[in-house]
């Protein structure tokens, strides 16, 4: 393998990691507040089709990205009403959100499956983008890639360095205490859930506007679920989410290059790789029950009602 191929693979890995970074960092914030939203896949795919339709109809790709975020927020709002206001089971509601999202996206996307779209342009910084190796590796992506990478320090700072982040984490550990201190548990959880929806929606829109600029039914292909697994794999830490996303991005790209390297495996087995790898990393990280117990937000998945607690 020559340097050129290697750079190509690395750059493709970064691009493949982006939807996972958006979705998983969003879900991380949600889970830190004590809410488990299993509807990431549904929010992503509705974000993907909404972004695609708006970009196609208006001709403005960035409006599409905004629409993707907005659609994710709307989906997350449904989840919020049912689990936060009406205190329903979060696992079941998250599943419902995914089933609903997959159906809804197929419904509204019916007439868009053979439509072409010019994807988001890659940035072109005079001088920098033309540098050998570094230019391709660092300065030649579309802007959403940089936004995803920027979200990492922002979210890390928010969670661990800001007062609001501290409150959010405290709420995830002990909502009753946070409530006793006068914080509105439900309101803060709503904000976290809506933020997670926006992030998943952008992750979906990235798929249909930049990664492969087209719409096809079920195009998220389980990335929302992999994002959920990434949060567990990362033991709820943003840095490890980023690392995990690159790992899985690499896995997705490896399947395209394995055949080029002369590895004779049917394509289907290579496509399985990210899913199997998800299982393997989940096993590795959950093997020690304490790792999960000590790192997971203590109130994760439990409903909160101020008169019951």
């Amino acid at each position: 393998m020559n340097t050129e191929t290697l750079i190509l693979i690395l750059a493709a890995t970064v691009a493949a990691a982006v939807p996972l970074i958006f979705a998983a960092l969003g879900e991380l914030v949600v889970e830190k507040s004590g809410v488990l939203n299993l509807g990431v896949e549904g929010m992503m795919i509705v974000g993907a089709i909404s972004g695609f339709i708006v970009a196609h109809e208006t001709g403005f790709l960035w409006l599409g990205v905004l629409a993707g975020a907005g659609a994710g927020v709307l989906m997350a709002f449904i989840f919020g009403i049912i689990t936060l206001t009406l205190m329903a089971n979060q696992v079941a509601t998250g599943l419902a959100l995914t089933i609903f999202g997959i159906g809804l996206s197929a419904f509204i996307g019916q007439n868009y499956s053979s439509v072409a779209l010019d994807g988001l342009d890659k940035i072109n910084l005079v001088g920098l983008s033309d540098l050998p190796i570094i230019g391709k590796l660092l300065f030649s992506y579309d802007p959403l890639v940089y936004l995803a990478l920027l979200m990492f320090p922002l979210i890390s700072w928010f969670l661990y360095r800001s007062r609001s982040g501290l409150i959010l984490r405290a709420l995830g550990e002990s909502p009753a205490s946070a409530h006793a201190l006068g914080y509105s548990v439900i309101k803060i959880r709503y904000l976290a859930v809506l933020f997670g929806g926006a992030m998943a929606g952008i992750g979906g829109a990235y798929l249909s506007l930049a990664y492969t600029p087209l719409w096809s039914e079920g195009m998220t292909a389980g990335r929302g679920w992999i994002a959920l697994a990434l949060v567990v794999f990362a033991t709820w830490r943003p840095g490890r989410v980023l690392l995990g996303a690159f790992l899985f991005g690499g896995m997705t790209i490896a399947q395209f290059h394995a055949q080029g390297l002369g590895i004779e495996i049917p394509a289907q087995f290579l496509t399985m790789l990210p899913y199997l790898a998800t299982i393997v990393v989940l096993v590795l990280i959950s093997r020690n029950a304490n790792t999960i117990r000590l790192n997971a937000p203590a109130s994760l998945g439990q409903a909160f009602h101020k008169e019951v607690h």
Partner: peptide, 12 residues
């Protein structure tokens, strides 16, 4: 796909 939308709504 309208049926899947209905199925999701029902569970909601």
């Amino acid at each position: 796909a309208v049926s899947k939308v209905f199925q999701g709504l029902l569970l909601f």
